[in-house]
Design a protein around this nucleic acid. Structure first.
Length: 436
RNA sequence: GGAGAGGUGGCCGAGUGGCUUAAGGCGUCGGUUUGCUAAACCGAUGUAGUGUCGAAAGGCGCUACCGGGGGUUCGAAUCCCCCCUUCUCCGCCA
């Protein structure tokens, strides 16, 4: 969420960000917001001065009553004042709700280093690490064929017991998945991240805090719990399956004031991730490319404003180190203004090479949100005891998501006779060195 | 699921409708005293919104905030309703 003060004082800055993000239809929202804000501020000032009067006269009434004098005239007068206040406050609540709604839907500003571009085709490839790219002397199988032949992935039974997009890992496939997760966690722990094992369900405040709500409410699975039917609206008593560990982990410090000396805070968290992927039918539907449940190891940082871009670079490097250790071909892409997510000020994607698909697959998004999430979630810090609280900068990135990583792993490490060689670094975790 | 007790500032804790500007204490910061330290004493010590003065740091004023939301009242930390949450006991359960 952006600061309403920023909107008020610098509307052009926000408008140019909207244009860069290819959102020209949103421009009118800024003017709407400015008009609302002006009206709201006028009402606040009216209401406040009436309240000041009420407080003062209430003291007078108290004094009269103590002296056993008559206060009926003042009470009658204040009755009217109170009614006026109630009317103003009702209108104010309405305006505030509308303003909040508009503000929550506005995307973040962009960092100056973000390239301008209309869509994904104009993203900038910063780095390609292709030394592990293989020349196959046979036609590489895709992960579906490999998974089926080796009996380690079962999409059909997943669809039977739950639904399409809920894969089952079996035998050495299940073990390899677990090995990957543990390898990634241990690697990040060694780099000074603290491990969190978060709840997989959160409340709506948490989703609002990290910016998934209200915009992406359709992408999130909901769970009701007993007694929920009796609540007046479906806004109460619902929990939501997390789309990423970013949500619970960033919200750990919601409504808190951190000490400057604690920063940067670096967390690593494994979680299952749940995404309904509504409206995305037709693209990347095969196998692991798009699923409703997957596993991810997430990196989350809380940093001071002046260090957050250095922290972003090291976050990307930490995520990259997994791909390097696994010996997979990959590239780093800087997202352009037309492709970057609404909450991020700057974002790098890590993409791993799929020999069967003959293209790169996204396995990580590393973003600096600056104070966008911190303002929503009210996460602040004090430089020292005496200084005023400031919003922290929040960052996160996958390190990494396993589903597409598994695709790349199986495909890149397959042999001509249909086996999978387990990468060296995973062997201590898997306790076998090949599948098949 | 049932019964009971709680949630007040950075922390502890008083406060049953107006002499509360949230008592008192602890902590922290500044000062006085002082070979040094400690103690004692004095003072300060929240967040947000808004107005005003200022080049700025900040000052002064007003408003809101006692778990969250609604209500009663001229006036609510205090009374009423709903919700969240913590603890204790009972029941059930992997």
């Amino acid at each position: 969420m952006l600061d309403i003060k920023l909107v008020r004082e610098n509307p052009d800055k926000i408008k140019s960000a909207l244009l860069a993000r290819q959102l020209p239809n949103e421009l009118s929202k800024i003017d709407e917001l400015l008009a609302l804000d002006q009206r709201r501020r006028a009402l606040v000032s009216q209401s406040d001065s009436l309240k000041a009067k009420r407080n003062k006269v209430s003291d007078d009434i108290a004094r009269l009553k103590r002296n056993k004098e008559n206060a009926d005239a003042l009470i009658a007068e204040m009755k009217i004042v109170s009614d006026d206040i109630a009317a103003l406050d009702a209108e104010l609540r309405d305006l505030e709700a509308k303003q909040e709604e508009l503000l929550l839907h506005l995307p973040n500003l962009l960092h100056e280093s973000v390239p301008l571009g209309k869509d994904a085709s104009e993203n900038v490839v910063c780095k390609e690490v292709l030394r592990h790219q293989r020349d196959f002397d046979f036609k590489p199988k895709n992960h579906l064929e490999l998974g089926k032949a080796l009996d380690i992935l079962d999409f059909e039974r997943g669809a039977k017991i739950t639904g399409a997009g809920f894969p089952v890992y079996k035998g050495k496939g299940a073990t390899l998945e677990r090995a990957l997760i543990n390898f990634m966690l241990d690697t990040h722990l060694a780099k000074g991240y603290e491990e969190i094992f978060p709840p997989f369900f959160v409340n709506r405040e948490s989703l609002r805090g990290t910016g998934q709500f209200p915009k992406f409410i359709g992408q999130v699975y909901r769970a009701s719990y007993e007694g929920q039917e009796t609540y007046e609206a479906d806004t109460v008593g619902r929990l939501f399956a997390i789309p990423t560990a970013e949500v619970p982990v960033t919200n750990l410090h919601r409504d808190e004031i951190l000490k400057g000396s604690q920063l940067p805070i670096k967390y690593v968290a494994y979680s299952a991730c749940f995404r309904s992927e509504a409206g995305s039918y037709g693209k990347d539907v095969r196998g692991f490319l798009r699923v409703h449940q997957f596993n991810k190891v997430e990196l989350v940082k809380f940093a001071t404003p002046e260090t957050s871009y250095d922290e972003l670079e090291s976050l990307v490097a930490d995520a990259e180190s997994i791909l390097v250790a696994l010996g997979l071909p990959y590239r780093v892409v800087l997202l352009c203004s037309g492709d970057i997510g609404a909450n991020a000020a700057k974002c790098y994607d890590l993409e791993v090479w799929s020999p069967a698909e003959q293209r790169f697959l996204e396995v990580s998004s590393c973003s600096n949100f600056e104070d966008f999430q911190a303002r929503r979630a009210n996460i602040r810090f004090k430089r020292d005891e005496k200084s005023k609280p400031e919003f922290v900068h929040t960052l996160n990135g996958s390190g990494l998501a396993t589903s597409r990583l598994m695709v790349a792993l199986l495909e890149n490490y397959q042999t001509k006779d249909g086996k999978i060689i387990v990468p060296e670094v995973l062997r201590p975790y898997a306790r076998f060195d090949a599948i098949g």
